[in-house]
């Protein structure tokens, strides 16, 4: 299961403040797309509109269309809870539930669906999700230990395991490596390459080399100044964005002349 995402003239508001303006983008299924750009340019805001997580802030709303395959995520009668079950998210800092064991963390999404699993079924799900997150070998002997006892990189992979356990269509990653050391970062990047076999992956990153390494397509966001809305400047194949961008702002950003 993997679905494409299409945004059409998407505006994101916080109250009266226009945070992101006029985004048009088509993200193919089973691909990795990276969002890059300077801080405050709206890339994280846009990412969070993809599973309606930005709505946790009061006053946040969206204009325009956002389609998951053909279904409008913001259509009337759509429950954000349903959207979030299909569009999973991995956060900037690893956030396993501190009171749950490693196993319980992986199965947390299943518990929400109210699924009654037999012991062997839940063992299978936990194992395949942890294998999918390249964490199984490291934790298979201590599944009942608290998830917060793992290292940062392991915790982040546990969060990825938790996300893929419920088999979402899309996985959003909000700077998933920014709190990790280079070795752990490499492990996550390898994992992303495997994840795209099954899922649509969208990743926000501040690290341009990372975007170049993991993604097939890259979107560059920029902001004209404080208080101005963020805009999607250029969206193209990653190789084109980094080697031969058509926009001057993109060129200046990827070559390190600003940002």
């Amino acid at each position: 299961m993997s679905k494409s995402i299409t945004a059409k003239d998407l505006n994101v508001y916080y109250g009266d403040f226009l945070a992101v303006e006029g985004v048009n983008v088509e993200i193919a299924a089973r691909s990795v797309t990276a969002f890059i750009g300077p801080s405050g340019c709206g890339k994280t805001t846009f990412l969070r509109t993809l599973n309606r997580m930005h709505e946790v802030l009061p006053g946040a709303r969206v204009e325009g269309q956002l389609l998951l395959d053909q279904d409008d995520i913001y259509g009337p009668g759509v429950d954000p809870v349903t959207v979030r079950a299909m569009v999973g998210m991995v956060f900037q800092r690893p956030n396993p539930f501190p009171t749950m064991s490693i196993r319980e963390n992986v199965l947390a999404g299943y518990k929400l669906n109210g699924a009654r699993l037999s012991r062997s079924q839940s063992d299978d799900i936990a194992e395949s999700a942890l294998r999918g997150a390249n964490l199984w070998e490291e934790v298979k002997d201590r599944l009942d230990q608290p998830g917060s006892g793992l290292s940062g990189g392991q915790q982040q992979r546990l969060c990825i395991a938790r996300t893929i356990a419920v088999k979402p269509d899309v996985i959003l990653m909000d700077e998933p490596c920014s709190a990790l050391d280079p070795i752990s970062t490499l492990a996550i990047e390898d994992l992303i390459a495997e994840l795209k076999e099954q899922f649509t992956v969208v990743i926000v990153t501040h690290n341009m080399q990372q975007a170049a390494r993991v993604s097939e397509k890259t979107a560059f966001f920029n902001i004209a100044g404080t208080g101005k809305p963020g805009k999607l400047i250029e969206y193209d194949d990653t190789a084109t964005i980094f080697n031969n961008p058509s926009n001057e702002q993109t060129e200046r950003y990827v070559s390190g002349k600003f940002g």
């Binding site: 997580m53 079950a85 299909m86 999973g88 800092r93 956030n95 501190p98 669906n113 938790r162 419920v166």
Partner: peptide
């Protein structure tokens, strides 16, 4: 962080 972790799982 923990609240959002739960919400992002479809809670």
């Amino acid at each position: 962080l923990h609240e959002e972790a739960a919400l992002a799982l479809g809670a």
